[in-house]
Structure formats: structure tokens, C-alpha cells
Design a protein around this nucleic acid. Sequence first.
DNA 1: TAATCAATAAGACATTTATCGTATTTGGAA
DNA 2: TTCCAAATACGATAAATGTCTTATTGATTA
Lengths: 216, 216
Amino acid sequence: MKIRVAIAEDNDLLAASIEEKLCLFTDDINFRYRASNGKDLLRKLEEDHVVDTILMDIEMPELDGIKATEAVAQSFPNIKVIMLTVFDDEDKIFRAIQAGANGYLLKDETPDKILDGIKMIMNGGAPMSPGIASKALDILRNPERATETPGKDFSLSKRENEVLLQLSRGLDYNKISDNLFISPSTVRKHIENIYKKLQVNNKVQAIRKAYKHKLL
Amino acid sequence: MKIRVAIAEDNDLLAASIEEKLCLFTDDINFRYRASNGKDLLRKLEEDHVVDTILMDIEMPELDGIKATEAVAQSFPNIKVIMLTVFDDEDKIFRAIQAGANGYLLKDETPDKILDGIKMIMNGGAPMSPGIASKALDILRNPERATETPGKDFSLSKRENEVLLQLSRGLDYNKISDNLFISPSTVRKHIENIYKKLQVNNKVQAIRKAYKHKLL
DNA sequence: TAATCAATAAGACATTTATCGTATTTGGAA
DNA sequence: TTCCAAATACGATAAATGTCTTATTGATTA
């Protein structure tokens, strides 16, 4: 079966050229659609998420490739993301991988290398341009660098932390309000504020994020 | 302020005697109520959870002290539980502590020791009869023993595990159904079955339990 | 002193969840 | 081959949750 691919790239010419080259090169690939930015991509995925791999540019208006990758990994864990970009600095690589990218190729890669990458990623591999791979290893050698993500400060208030703790125990609003001696309305408001601060919109996501950032 | 105490004990005479002795002995204690079994206790707590400490017997009809302790720790994490019982075998001690008991006293303890225990527990201590304490240490010395709880087999099916994984990522039913290519109804049914098998009744509890037992 | 912020509380509304019951299909075990 | 568990699916209903708005109080700070 053909591998279904989508591409997120704001430069029309470049997107068309990649698409064209890949299609000329093989017929193992089924190009589903192209999005011109992260927001566009997410919108299209909501309608038609039946895609195996996304070629993702980093620099895009509206919503950049890293944030988009984060959203894709969150909502569609089955979809593999290959960053396809001109940037090769450690920071970008690191952040892309943290966001959930499964591969990282440079745009000057030849079409057959890109095709290899797509196939590799479908087999659970992690395609990377040579330069990228070694930088990735550099990052791995310095675990302090990798440890800088957690411990982020969302400045939850004391009360919010208490509520969060109770939330994480699986209690509902009423039980929490009983335990903290405040009204259910207040519990709701606290939770609403917690969601805003953590940028999530349900309990499980809040707890996950809190764990990840060592708030729990 | 007086310490509010409840007692769960199926033997009328014994319960009355403990209550009487403690009240005679001091006026630091405010006896709220007595329950004659675990179910009764939980019912009374639902109405009036404003209790600081519960003296809990292990052997009780309807719902035993260990299960009741589990339920209390789950729903009212603020309430401290002191097991007050004649059993001193390692297994009971271990399971009581696992269930969330904060102290473990033998029934032949003198009233003033019990009173000490109640005060100690309110200060974050862990009152234990001497024999119990050393057995508790024995258990701690054998971590394998302590590790026997997890890894329990809830025999979730393959599909149920997949659903559980998605649940743990904070996805809602629709997203999960998209990702697994099944209808939302089916996702709901799977989750219903997961809840039954894990004996929980919401997402967060399911995820907690799954983590605890290494299903995730 | 005025401006903020944390904590409290409530109402309204749409959406999501949790719990039932019921039913069909399918692959493997007895 | 019959039986069963697992996976699929739908409907109904009540409860819980998520989102928004508005408002009061007390503490802190600019």
C-alpha cells in the first residue's frame, strides 16, 4: 500500500517542487494534501487525518512547525512527522524532537534520500541528515541540556497546586470541594485557571503536563 | 481545637469501651460517631466528612477495614486512619499500609497510648505498637515483598490496552476513535470494560491504577 | 491610594463522560 | 461444531466537565 503523505510548507514553489520530485521518483507515495502553515495543517488533519507521514517545515506563519508537531503528536500519535527544513542548529533540533518529531531532514537532501527517510520512518526508524544525527548525539551526550525542559514555571498559586493534587488522585469536583472546604464553583474556577496556565483543556492533560514539569 | 475522631468497629461493647476510656482520659477529643462496618462508615463519611482521624478495626462485616481504608484514602485524603486491631501478622500490616493507613495499633494498647497515637498522627507521625513497628521494618528490609503488589493481572485485551494508552495521553473519545479507526461507541464500550476490569469509574483513576500496576 | 492578584462563589450552556442495555461478527478453544 | 471472548456498534440518560461571565473580599504592590 502506498504511503500517504502530507506536506506543511509555506513556500508554494518549494512545496510544489518537493511534491513533484518525489512523485516523479516513485509511485509508492500517495500525496494527500499540502498545508501552507501549521494552523492550516491542523484544520486539514481534523477533516482527514488519514495520513501516514507529514513533511514539516519549521518556519511557517500562523503556527510554526514545532508547535504544529506538538499538536500532531498530541492529537494523532499514529502520524509520523519528518522535519524538513534548512535549520540545523541544536536548539531547533532539540525542540523538534521534544515536540515529537520522528525524523529531521535538511531541505537540500536529494529526493531519493527524502524518499528513503519516509520509508524508514514507516518502519519505525528515525531518518536524519548526517549533520543532524551527530548534533543529536551531541545533545544526548549532554543530558543537562536535555533536562532543561522540565521544571518550567507555570506559577500556579498555592491553592491551585492543592486542587491539582486532588485532581491527580482522580477525585471529582464535589469531593475536592469537600476536602478543601470550598464550594464546587470555586473548585471549578481554580481548575479553569490551572488549565489556562498549563495551556490544556482537560484533567488528564493537566495531570500529564504537571508530571512532566515536576509540579506533582 | 479538639481532635475529631470516628471509630469503625463491629463489636458494640468494645467500641463503647474504647470511646468511654478515651473520653474519660482526656477532653482533647471530640467523638463524632461510630460505624459498625466499612459500608456504614463510608455512608456516614459521605454525610459528614468533617473528621480528623478514624480508628479502624480490620475484621468487620460488609466491608473490611482494609478496603474501607482504601476508600477513605481515596475519597478523603485529609483523614488519617489508625488501624486498631488484634491482628499483627505481616500480611495484614502490609496490606493496611498499602491501603493508606497512617498508623497501626493493637487493641490491647492502653488508652493513653491510643491517645498518644491520635495526637502523633495529627502531627504527621505514624503511631505503631512496638511489635508492629519492627515487623514494618522487616517488610521494608525485603523490598521484594513490597514489590509484589504491582504487576497485577487485570487481563485487559490488546485493544483495551491500546485504548488505555490513548486515554492516558489525554485524548477524548472522538480523537481516540479517529486514531484507532473505530467508532466512538466502540471506544466508549472499551473504556467501560476497562473501568470494570480495573474497578474504577473515571479516566484519571483508570490511568492511576494502570500506572501503579505497570500497565502503562 | 490605586491597581493587581489570589481566593472565593454562582449561573448558564454546550460538550463530554459514565453507565445502562442490546446486538452483530469473528476467531479461537473445548 | 459449538461456545465464548473480543471487538465492533448504537441508543438513552444522568452526571460530570469545560468554558464563559460576573462579582466580592482581602492582601500585596506599584
